[in-house]
Design a protein around this nucleic acid. Structure first.
Lengths: 126, 126, 126, 126
DNA sequence: GTGGTCTAGACCACT
DNA sequence: GTGGTCTAGACCACA
C-alpha cells in the first residue's frame, strides 16, 4: 500500500505526503475518513513518529486533512476545499517543464500525446 | 534571463540547473555553444563560483553539458545523448502525479486535455 | 586502514574514493553497513568535511553507496547494483593499456600470465 | 590514427601521451623513428602546440622519447631503456585494483581469465 | 545526530 | 584564461 524508498533523494516525510495524496486522489481514502494516528502509522511503516507528524502537518497545510483535537485527523470534504489559483499556476509551470524534459529525452510529440491521453483515461475511471 | 529566488525551498544550484535546462530545451542555447565560464556566470548572477560549478557538474552528469579542461563547458550535441530509460520512467511517474494533482485541485479532465494539447503545440513550433 | 598521500597527483577525494572502494571490494565493508558520518571520517583522516562529502557523493554516483537523509550513508546491496556495460568496456580498455605497459616495461607474456593468475586466485579466496 | 576525446575527463596532453605510447607499443612507431615536430603534430590533431609540447616532455620523462636539439625527437631504442622497478610495482597495484573492479562489476573469475588470456595473445602477435 | 548547501578565498593544472 | 580541488566555517532541513 505504502511505497517508501529510503534510497530516494526525496525526504521520507515527502514520500509519506505523496503516498497519502495518492490514496486520497485515487479515492481509497474518502472525505471524512479517519486516518491512523501518528504513532500507529509510524509503527506500520516503521518510520520515526516525528516524520509522520511532519507529513500530517504538511498535508494539513495543503488542505488535504484536518485535525480534531482529541479525535484524530480526517480527510477534508471536497466542498471545503477552495481551488488555489497560485497552486494551479505552479502546476501548469511544472507540467510545461515536464513536457520539455520528455521531449528533450527523445520522446516524440505524438508519443507524449498518447501517454497523456492514456493517463487521463486511466484516472477518469479510478 | 535568469530567474533566481533565494527564498525558494529549491536550492540555488538546482535553480541554476533548471534555468539552464530550460534555455537548452527552448533552443536558446544550442549544441556546441559555449556557456559562460563558472566565474563569469557567478559574477552575473551574484552567486558563489562553487555554487555555479556544482550546477554545471550536475548538468554534465545529466548529459546536457560537457567540459573541456582549460577551455570551458559546452552544450552537448543531440546525437551524443543516449536516451535514459530510467529517466523516462521517472518522468512518466511525475507526469502521472502531476495530473492527479491538477484534478484534485479542481481541474476537469477536459480542461487538462486542452491545456496539454496547447502545450504540445506551442513547443512544436519553438 | 586508510592510505592518504597528500603529495600524490591524485586528488584527496579520489584517494578516499579508492580506499573505500577497496574496503568494499575486499569485503571489509559489507552491504547495509553504515559508513562513518561525513564529519566523523573527516576528523579521523584530518581532511575537510566537504572533501569527504565529495568522495561519498562520487561513490554514490558509482553505485557503491546510498544515502538516507538524516540517518547516514550505507553500502549498497549487491542485488541492487545493475551491471554497467559502459563501465565494463572502460575497464577492459584500461586492462588492455595496462598489459601493454607491463610488457613495455620489460615483463614477458609468461610472467604477466603468472602474475594475473595469482591475482585471480588470491581474490577468489578473499 | 589518433583518438582524441575532448569530452573525456582525461586531459588532452595525457591522451596524446597514451596515443603515442600505444603506437610505440604496437610497433607502429619503431626505435629511432622520428616523430613529427611539435608544431606539425599540433596542426595535424588540431591541438594547442603547448599541449603537444607537454606530451612530448612527459614521454621523454618516462623514457619513451629522446630529443636531439635541432634535429627533432625520436623513439628510444629498447636497449637504452632500463626497467623501472617502482613503475612495475605501481602497475601491479593498478592491475590488482582493476581486477577487483571487474569482479565487483559482475564479471566472473572465469570470464576475467578468458578476457586476459585473449588480450595477452592479441598483443603477442602485434 | 545526520547529510546538504553556501560563502569566501586560496592554490593548482591545463590550454 | 579555463575548470578542479581544498579549506574553514556557517546555516538549514531531516530523523
Amino acid at each position: 500500500m505504502f511505497q517508501l524508498d529510503l534510497k530516494s533523494r526525496k525526504s521520507i516525510y515527502e514520500q509519506v505526503v505523496d503516498n497519502i495524496k495518492s490514496l486520497v486522489m485515487a479515492g481509497v481514502l474518502k472525505p471524512k475518513d479517519k486516518l491512523p494516528s501518528v504513532r500507529e502509522l509510524s509503527r506500520i511503516i516503521t518510520v520515526n513518529p516525528n516524520t509522520v507528524q511532519k507529513a500530517y502537518r504538511e498535508l494539513e497545510r495543503q488542505g488535504y486533512l484536518y485535525t480534531v483535537l482529541g479525535l484524530g485527523t480526517f480527510i477534508t470534504e471536497q466542498s471545503e476545499r477552495k481551488p488555489d489559483e497560485d497552486k494551479l499556476n505552479d502546476l501548469r509551470k511544472q507540467l510545461r517543464q515536464l513536457i520539455q524534459e520528455l521531449r528533450y529525452n527523445g520522446m516524440e510529440t505524438a508519443e507524449i500525446r498518447c501517454l497523456i491521453l492514456d493517463l487521463l483515461n486511466e484516472k477518469g475511471q479510478a
